[in-house]
């Protein structure tokens, strides 16, 4: 009896995972499309007033108040060294939750939720461009239809931030 129950539970769990597996929230920034695994996405909210924080990297736009929770937001364009663009009605904040750290990503335009099969994801070509900044967060390229989507690894994105912050502190102390 118990065994059966367990199996059922497992199946349910697997199913749930399945329903999220291979699904990516894609958004457009500039001409390029990016994708984030949907399991990281908490919600998508409309642009909000942002309280700026002084003396931080320019891509950290500031803090927003998400129903009493204060979370930082970063501008994806600025993060990827693109020219910042004006915020419009289409501009959204994707709230992602990576290991309990909540961060908002400001994106120009939400595209859609795409299902991308594992085998259509290829690692980004490395033509000796290791120093190229945004490659670090892009773990794969996916071709859907006629567009190529850059898949982001939020965990890396956040960890990288932390490392950078620590490094900066060390540099300052020196």
């Amino acid at each position: 009896m118990a065994e059966e129950l367990k199996n059922e539970e497992m199946e349910e769990l697997l199913e749930e995972e399945d329903s999220q597996k291979g699904k990516f929230m894609t958004f457009q920034t500039g001409k390029e499309f990016f994708g984030i695994s949907i399991s990281y996405v908490n919600e998508i909210i409309a642009m909000q007033p942002i309280a700026a924080i002084p003396e931080v990297d320019d891509y950290i736009k500031g803090l927003i108040n998400l129903r009493g929770k204060i979370i930082p937001v970063i501008d994806v364009r600025v993060r990827f060294k693109m020219e910042p663009s004006e915020y419009t009605d289409r501009t959204c904040i994707i709230v992602i939750d990576v290991n309990s750290t909540m961060i908002g990503l400001i994106v120009e335009k939400i595209a859609e939720v795409d299902t991308i099969a594992d085998d259509s994801i290829v690692p980004p070509p490395s033509l000796g461009r290791k120093e190229h900044e945004h490659n670090k967060y892009v773990y794969g390229l996916a071709r859907t239809g006629d567009a190529v989507k850059l898949l982001l690894d939020p965990e890396k994105l956040i960890r990288q931030e932390e490392i950078e912050a620590v490094m900066e502190d060390i540099r300052k102390e020196d």
Binding site: E55, V56, G68, P72
Partner: peptide, 21 residues
Amino acid sequence: PPYVKKVKGLSGCTQLGDGSI
């Protein structure tokens, strides 16, 4: 939030009556 590195001269943040920070 710890994601934002510590800024000297700021000890925290708060929500004002109108919801702004």
